[in-house]
Amino acid sequence: MTSQRKVALALTGIFLALFIVIIIGVLEQGRYDYAKNIAIKAAIWVIYTFLEMKYDVQLSNYIRVLVMAVLLSDSFAGLYLNLYATSAIFDKIQHVFGSYAFALFVYTLICTLTRPVINRAFSLFFIISLGLSIGAIYEIGEFIGDATMRPAIPSQPSLLDTNLDLLADLGGALLAAIHIAIVLTYNRTPPVR
Rank of each mutant, 00 (worst) to 15 (best):
L174S: 02
R5S: 05
I44E: 09
F102R: 07
G98S: 03
G172R: 14
F76K: 15
S60V: 06
P190F: 11
K41Y: 00
F50A: 08
T162K: 12
A168E: 15
I93P: 06
R64W: 03
G25L: 05
G131Q: 11
S87R: 11
L124N: 06
T114M: 12
Y34R: 08
I153H: 15
G30Y: 05
N187R: 13
I153P: 04
F50Y: 13
L83W: 03
L166T: 02
I38V: 00
S99D: 10
R5I: 11
I14G: 03
G30S: 01
V57T: 03
S123I: 00
A173F: 05
N82Q: 08
R193S: 08
I38L: 08
E142T: 00
D33M: 14
Y32T: 09
I118D: 10
K92D: 08
T86A: 14
G135K: 12
F126E: 13
L51M: 06
L113M: 13
S75K: 06
D146G: 02
F15H: 04
F102A: 12
L51W: 02
F105E: 09
Y48L: 09
F97S: 09
A121N: 13
S155L: 15
L109C: 05
S129G: 11
I110N: 01
A8T: 03
S123P: 00
I118H: 08
A176R: 05
N187L: 15
M53G: 05
T12D: 02
D74R: 09
T112L: 15
G145D: 12
D91I: 08
I22W: 05
A10Y: 06
T162V: 04
R31I: 02
V183N: 12
L174D: 04
S87P: 00
A181N: 14
G30Q: 09
S158L: 13
L72R: 14
L132R: 15
M1R: 06
A101G: 05
Y107L: 08
K41I: 04
P190L: 12
V192L: 15
V46R: 01
A8Q: 06
D74Y: 06
H179T: 13
E139Q: 09
G135R: 15
A43D: 04
T2I: 04
L167W: 06
